[in-house]
Amino acid sequence: MIRYSLKCDQDHGFESWFQSAAAFDDLAAAGRLSCPVCGSVTVDKTLMAPAVRPARKAAPGALAAPGSKVEEALAALRKQVEENSEYVGLNFAAEARAIHEGDAPQRAIYGEAKLEEARRLVEDGVPVAPLPFMPPRKVN
């Protein structure tokens, strides 16, 4: 796995993990990378400093910097979504379609869908949008 610092053509900076450098190149060439702030698919790698571990004697938290405005905005968005929507997990595509067709009660939902499921929802006119964060995972 490799982590890249990225920037879109609107000058929004963000980071993402990729299986390899070739995986990044393939996704970028296919237009499958997008900015979490504006949705632009024109995304490039930027210079990135290597991760360096602090000295053992460094004060705890000495390298921690306060969150950026983007991180704060994403946290606020996540809080709003979680407080005002129902998490339906991996049933998102089926539930969104049922709501759209009137087979389930109208309500705000969020969850997870495979790329092909999401594509079919969009093609069928079901109003959905990707979220710029991953839903919480429940662990045993």
Rank of each mutant, 00 (worst) to 15 (best):
G67E: 05
E72H: 09
A30T: 00
P127E: 07
P60W: 02
E123L: 15
F18M: 07
E82K: 08
R78H: 11
E117M: 13
L77H: 05
E101Q: 10
A29H: 12
P130A: 09
K7D: 03
G39H: 00
A104E: 14
R107A: 13
A94N: 08
D25S: 14
R53E: 07
N140G: 05
V37P: 00
A73R: 03
E123A: 15
W17V: 10
V52G: 00
A96Y: 06
R120L: 14
V128Y: 04
S16W: 09
A96L: 10
G111Q: 11
A65L: 10
C8A: 10
L77W: 04
P36Y: 11
S5Y: 12
A21N: 13
G39A: 04
Y87Q: 13
L90D: 15
A108M: 12
Q10C: 06
M48K: 12
L131C: 07
P60C: 00
L131G: 06
G125Q: 06
L131N: 05
A49W: 05
K79C: 09
A49F: 08
A59I: 00
N84A: 13
K69T: 04
G102D: 02
A62R: 04
G61D: 00
R32L: 15
E116I: 13
A96G: 08
E116D: 14
Q10R: 15
Y110R: 13
G89M: 14
E101D: 14
G125P: 04
Y87R: 14
L115A: 15
G39T: 03
T42A: 07
L47Q: 07
L131V: 05
A75S: 12
P54V: 05
V81W: 07
V88M: 11
A96C: 08
L63D: 03
L90H: 12
G111E: 12
P66I: 01
A108Q: 14
A49E: 08
Q10T: 06
P136W: 00
V88R: 07
E71A: 13
L6W: 07
A62M: 05
R120G: 01
Y4Q: 13
A104I: 09
P36F: 13
H12V: 06
R137F: 11
H12S: 08
Q106S: 11
G89V: 12
N84H: 15
G67R: 01
P60N: 02
